[in-house]
């Protein structure tokens, strides 16, 4: 109960990073968006639809990065029982789910003109969809118990199990995909032109620093939620007679 009473070194580092991450993200979005939308040339094959890549690829990257962070947090929580780790995992899950959804939506919007359909069982999109389900399952279980601490623990186990499983899922989907759809979607002919690298890296940087900044904000928020819960519980324990009266 008292574990949250002291500011952790972790939080101090996170708070120190925050202004840099937030500032960097703002600057990179301000430079990156005009480059991505205006100054970078259209692809000679895909035309202007290539611009969707500049949100799709970063969103997909963030969806994986956040899962990685979540898996590390979960493992750290299980190994060292450090309460900050579960706060971190809780803060991350919705962020990951949102970027996974964004990667799916932008991917399918890119697919419509390129493949002629909004949804193709492409290996990457399929993996991304399964990742979304895993994120949603994680959020669901973290929130499925009367005792939030039990939710944290169960979610941590699921986070680790998921991180072991994700590469296997990706590998199996990849295998399945090559057998079922030999030629339609292969991105051959998509030569990476140098001109897409600048907007791509700007946006990757912007998304990454945004995620770090939002993570710190959510860490603070989740930490406060725990403190509030503890405060409420200690209030209850200070008034046992009141509590007993209510239970009867």
């Amino acid at each position: 109960m008292h574990r949250f009473a002291n500011p952790t070194t972790f939080m101090r580092i996170a708070n120190a990073i925050f202004p840099w991450a937030a500032g960097l993200s703002a600057v990179l979005f301000l430079i990156g968006l005009p480059v991505a939308l205006v100054t970078s040339p259209a692809d000679y094959q895909q035309g202007d639809s290539v611009r969707l890549f500049y949100v799709h690829v970063p969103a997909a990257w963030i969806s994986l990065m956040v899962y990685g962070m979540m898996a590390v947090s979960s493992a750290a929580f299980l190994i060292w029982r450090h309460p900050m780790a579960s706060v971190s995992a809780r803060a991350l899950a919705p962020v990951g789910a949102i970027f996974t959804a964004l990667a799916l939506v932008t991917g399918s919007l890119w697919g419509r003109p390129m493949w002629g359909t909004y949804w193709v069982w492409d290996a990457r999109l399929t993996s991304e969809l399964l990742l979304l389900f895993i994120y949603l399952g994680y959020i669901a279980i973290a929130d499925a118990f009367e005792d939030p601490e039990r939710g944290d623990k169960a979610a941590a186990v699921l986070g680790v199990v998921g991180s072991v499983n994700l590469p296997i899922i990706h590998f199996s989907v990849e295998w399945w995909n090559t057998l079922h759809q030999p030629s339609i979607i292969k991105m051959t002919g998509f030569t990476v032109d140098g001109s897409i690298l600048l907007p791509l890296f700007l946006m990757l940087g912007a998304f990454t620093s945004y995620t770090i900044a939002i993570w710190v904000l959510r860490l603070r928020s989740e930490l406060l939620a725990v403190k509030l819960r503890n405060a409420r519980m200690s209030e209850v324990s200070l008034a046992p007679s009141l509590n007993r009266g209510a239970a009867e």
Binding site: I134, G137, A154, L158, N165, I169
Partner: peptide, 21 residues
């Protein structure tokens, strides 16, 4: 999911993606 509020449905939701391979 032992002792959770929505055991059965939650169980399916958690486990089915892991069954994909």
């Amino acid at each position: 999911v032992l002792g959770s509020r929505r055991g059965g449905v939650l169980l399916s939701f958690l486990v089915l993606p892991l069954y994909v391979p």
